[in-house]
Amino acid sequence: MKFEHLVEVNDLADPAATALSREELWFGLLCRAEDARPFLPGLEACEIMERGEGMLLRELRFGSAVIRDRVTFSELEWIRFESEATPEHAGGWLTISIEEPQPGALFLRFEYRTGLQEDGGSEDGRYADFVRSAYHQSDLDTLKVIRMIAESGRLQ
């Protein structure tokens, strides 16, 4: 399955809205890499197994399901989560890119590629629409968590 969409971060037309900087947005994405629990409901543990230049290897525990993934990134630009396929998980990747078509107009582009088939006649195909909807809601929630992180940092 392939799925991508944009989430607006800063609404420049609304002067009352609190704008995030690229750095605050990036910091929030790094928080998601370091400890994904606030970003993924049901995630019980997020353990960093290895660190390298621009890379993390993690183990995520959702109850009895364990997912291993690799996080790679380019600072202030994009972050990618690549998960291994398991019997409980189709595997795939998610890339989150920061886009700024004009100064201060920040967007997050979420690009998903999974092993889930989109053929309309298959069980996976019927499930794909549900998965896309869940991903979209999760991405909106990601921005909410990043805003909470940024706001808590501003209070110090």
Rank of each mutant, 00 (worst) to 15 (best):
R113N: 14
D11T: 02
A128M: 01
L116Y: 02
A45H: 15
G63V: 09
W26T: 02
G92P: 04
M55D: 12
I149L: 07
R132E: 10
E151M: 10
E84F: 08
L43C: 03
V9W: 01
L20N: 01
I96P: 03
I96C: 05
W78L: 10
I67V: 03
I48C: 13
I146D: 02
G121E: 06
L57Q: 10
D141C: 12
G63T: 07
A128L: 03
L25Q: 02
L43K: 00
L155Y: 13
C46F: 10
A13Q: 14
E59V: 15
E8H: 10
R154S: 06
E50R: 12
F3E: 06
A85N: 13
P103K: 14
R58L: 08
H5M: 12
A65S: 12
R68I: 07
M49V: 15
E4Q: 13
R70Q: 12
L30H: 02
E47T: 15
L155P: 04
F107L: 08
E88W: 11
E24G: 00
R126M: 09
L56S: 06
L76Y: 14
F81R: 01
P101G: 08
D11W: 03
L25F: 01
R109P: 04
E59D: 14
F81E: 00
A65T: 11
L43I: 01
L43W: 01
A36W: 02
S97V: 05
D141F: 12
G54Q: 14
R147K: 05
E100Y: 06
L116E: 03
H89N: 10
E84D: 13
S133E: 14
T114L: 04
R32M: 05
L57H: 07
E77Y: 09
Q156K: 15
A105D: 10
S21W: 04
R154Q: 08
L140Y: 07
G120C: 11
C46P: 03
E151G: 04
L30R: 00
F27Q: 05
S152V: 09
I98S: 01
Q102E: 15
G120P: 07
L40N: 01
P103Q: 13
R132F: 12
G42D: 08
L108A: 01
I96T: 04
P15Y: 09
S138Y: 09
S64L: 13
M1F: 11
I96R: 03
R68A: 08
F39A: 02
A33C: 04
L76T: 10
D124G: 01
E118R: 07
T95H: 06
E44T: 13
P38N: 11
A90V: 11
A134P: 04
A65V: 10
L106H: 03
A45W: 12
R80H: 10
I146E: 02
Q102V: 11
A150D: 00
I48V: 15
P87I: 09
M148E: 15
D124V: 02
R51P: 04
E99S: 12
R51F: 05
A128S: 05
F3C: 08
K144T: 14
F27Y: 08
G115A: 13
H136W: 13
F3H: 09
S138I: 05
F62P: 00
S133Q: 14
T86P: 00
L20E: 02
A36V: 01
P103Y: 12
V66H: 01
R37P: 05
E23W: 09
E118G: 04
T72Q: 09
R68M: 08
D35V: 06
R32F: 05
Y127E: 09
A85T: 14
